[in-house]
Design a protein around this nucleic acid. Structure first.
Lengths: 342, 342
DNA sequence: GTGAAAGCGCTAACAG
DNA sequence: CTGTTAGCGCTTTCAC
C-alpha cells in the first residue's frame, strides 16, 4: 500500500486538501459536519501526515535534540544521565515531540554532528547537558540560532537559558549537616575539574566551613571526577589526613568511597561519616544507606523540555533560568542516628 | 542570515542546482574542477542541505528510531539499557545517522507514539529492545512496513530480524561452572516472567543440572524481575531452602542478592556462591567481586545498527539474525579460588 | 558532465 | 467556512 496523502483523504470526502489539513491541525475554521467526516476518513484509512513534507512547508519539525557532550563520558556508568534522559523523554511524549539523541563521544563526532544539529533544520530546539567551563560545544551552539536550553549551570550563565539546582546551597546544607552533627575534620571529594557543578559544590562546602569558623584545609579537598573509581581513589588519598566526615559530590563516588573505607577496615559512619549527592536509587540500597542531597533529576529534564517549547514558540530573549529545589535526605551514612545534634 | 539553499551555492559558482546536489551527494558525474569549486563554496558559506527537503524528495530521512517498550521500565536503574543505547549511538555516529529515542512509559505513549513511528515517514528504520512473549508493540511493528531489528530474541523469532546472545548456552555455562566447583544445591534467580531472556536462561540452567544428573527442584527457582530489590527478595525467599550456590539472571539482581545475604549474616562465597549475568561495571566493583557472564552489550547495539542499515538498503527478506558470544568472567563470588576444580 | 523540469506532501496566504 | 495557488529545498529522471 502506497502511503496516503492529504489529497487522497480530500478526494474521498469530497473536500479540498486544505480542509483536510485544517482538520489535521485542529484549525477552528471547519464546519462540524465536514470535520466529522474528515476525521472518520482519517480514522478508517489510518492516514498520518508525512513528517518531512510538513517540516518543509512549516519550518517546524516537532523534534528536539538532546546533546550529551564529550565531557559526559559516563552516560551509562552514572545513573544520573539515563534518569535525566527519561525525564526529557516523558516531557517529549507529553508534548507530542520526538527526541533525537546525540551522544558525542569524540572530537570527530562533534565536528560531524554539530552542523547537522544547528544548520540542517532537523531540530526545532536543543537541550544540552553541560557545565564545563570550557566546553567548545557551547560556543558553537550559541553561534547557531537554534533555541537552546542548558541542563546545568553554564559557565557564562547570563547568555543562556538553563535549568539547574542551587548547588552552592545544596553543598552548604550537606556540609552544615555534618558540622551540626559535631564533626570537625570535614573533607570533600569533588567532581570533575572545571565544571560549574564542581565549582559550586566546593563553594557551598567552603561557605559552611567558613561560617562555622573552621579553616578550610586543602589537604581535605580531594579531586574526583564523578566515577566510582575516582571516589575510591579520592577516599584513599584522604585517609592519611584523618577526616572524620566527608561530603562527596556524587553518590556514585560515595559508593567508591565506601569501598575504599571497607578495604581499609574502617566503618561508616562510626569511623568516618559520609554525605553524598544526587540520591540515585543505589543510595538507599547500599549496605550503609547513604545520606545524600536529592536532586529532582527527572524534573530537571521535563522542566527543560517545557522551557524549550516556550522558547521555540515565543522566542528566547531575554535568557531565563529555573533553579529547582534540592533536599537533604538523612539516612545512615552521616551518623545522625548515632550522634546528638547540637 | 537566512538559510542558504542549493540554488544559492549554484548561483555563486555559476552552475546549476543539480550539479551542487551531485557534489553534496558524492555523485561521480561531476568534473573535478567544478567539484572543487563547489566544495570550496560550500566550505566557505558553511552551507548544509535542509534535512526536511531532502527527506521529502528522496524518501529517506537518515534517522533511525530506538524503541524501548513499556516492559523496559528500568531504563535508568539497570545500566544495561544506557550501555546498549550508547552502543547504538556510536553506530549511528559512525554512519551519519541520527537516533530518535522512544521511551514508552505507558499505554497512552504507545498509542501516540506508534503511528508516528510507523506511518509518518520520519524514520528509515527502527531498533526495538524487546523479548517479551506478548509485547503488543511487536505485532504493531510487524504490521508496519518499516525495516526493524529486534535487540534480544523475539518470541516468534522466525519472523524477525534480531541480534541476541545465546542465553541458553550462557546460562548453561554459568551453571556448569558452579557444578564443576562441586556445589550441589544450585538455585537460580530468574528475570521477569514471560520474557525470552528469562526462559532461555532458565533452560540453560535446567540443561546443566540435568546433564550432571541433578534433579531440578522448583523450590530452588526463585522469580525476580531484573531489579535490585527483586534480587534481594528472591534471595531471601531462597534462603530457607539452603542453596549452596545461585545462578542469577542479572548482575543488578545479584547485587540485591548480596545485600540480602549480608543482612542474613551469610558470606559470599563461603556460605553461598553466586554467578551473575551481564558484567555491568558494578560487577567488578562490589566488595565481593562478581563472577558473571559477560554480554557484549555495546556490540549488540552497534551490530543492530549495522544490520538495520543493511535492511534499509537491501530489503529485509529473509529475516536474519546474529548471535553474539558471551564469556564467563571468573571473579570471587563463585568461590573458584577457594575450591578445587574437579 | 551538465542543466531543465517535474515533483515529493504539506502549509499558508489569499480570495471568495 | 472553503478552495485555489504558491511555494518549502531538495532529488531525480531525462535530454543534450
Amino acid at each position: 500500500m502506497a502511503e496516503l496523502t492529504l489529497e487522497d483523504i480530500a478526494k474521498q470526502v469530497g473536500v479540498s486538501r486544505s480542509t483536510v489539513s485544517r482538520v489535521v491541525n485542529g484549525s477552528p475554521n471547519v464546519s462540524p459536519e465536514v470535520r466529522l467526516q474528515v476525521e472518520e476518513a482519517i480514522r478508517i484509512t489510518g492516514f498520518h501526515p508525512n513528517a518531512a513534507a510538513r517540516s518543509l512547508a512549516s519550518q517546524r519539525t516537532r523534534v528536539i535534540g538532546l546533546v550529551l557532550p564529550r565531557s559526559v563520558s559516563s552516560f551509562f556508568t552514572d545513573p544520573f544521565f539515563p534518569q535525566l534522559t527519561q525525564g526529557i523523554a516523558v516531557g517529549c511524549n507529553a508534548n507530542d515531540l520526538s527526541l533525537s539523541l546525540f551522544l558525542v563521544t569524540n572530537k570527530e563526532d562533534e565536528d560531524k554532528i554539530m552542523p547537522r544539529i544547528s544548520r540542517s533544520g532537523m531540530l526545532d530546539g536543543i537541550l544540552v547537558q553541560s557545565g564545563r567551563a570550557d566546553d567548545p560545544l557551547m560556543e558553537r551552539l550559541t553561534n547557531s540560532r537554534i533555541p537552546c536550553v542548558v541542563l546545568g549551570r553554564p559557565f557564562n550563565h547570563d547568555c543562556f537559558n538553563y535549568i539547574d539546582v542551587d548547588n552552592v546551597k545544596a553543598a552548604y546544607s550537606a556540609t552544615k549537616h555534618l558540622i551540626d552533627l559535631g564533626y570537625t575534620r570535614i573533607a570533600t571529594i569533588t567532581g570533575s575539574h572545571g565544571s560549574t557543578v564542581t565549582l559550586d559544590r566546593i563553594e557551598g562546602y567552603v561557605n559552611a566551613l567558613t561560617e562555622a569558623g573552621f579553616v578550610v584545609q586543602p589537604s581535605l579537598i580531594s579531586k574526583g571526577e564523578f566515577s566510582e573509581t575516582s571516589g575510591y581513589e579520592a577516599m584513599k588519598s584522604l585517609l592519611p589526613h584523618k577526616p572524620d566526615a566527608v561530603f562527596i559530590a556524587s553518590d556514585l563516588m560515595a559508593s567508591g568511597a565506601i569501598r575504599a573505607l571497607q578495604d581499609s577496615g574502617l566503618h561508616v559512619p562510626e569511623d568516618i561519616a559520609l554525605v553524598g549527592f544526587d540520591d540515585i536509587p543505589l543510595a538507599a540500597l547500599t549496605k550503609i544507606r547513604l545520606t545524600t542531597i536529592r536532586q529532582p533529576i527527572t524534573q530537571i529534564g521535563s522542566k527543560g523540555v517545557e522551557l524549550l517549547i516556550d522558547l521555540i514558540e515565543n522566542g528566547s530573549q531575554p535568557p531565563r533560568n529555573f533553579i529547582l529545589d534540592t533536599e537533604l535526605i538523612v539516612r545512615d551514612s552521616c551518623g545522625a542516628k548515632l550522634r546528638q545534634k547540637k
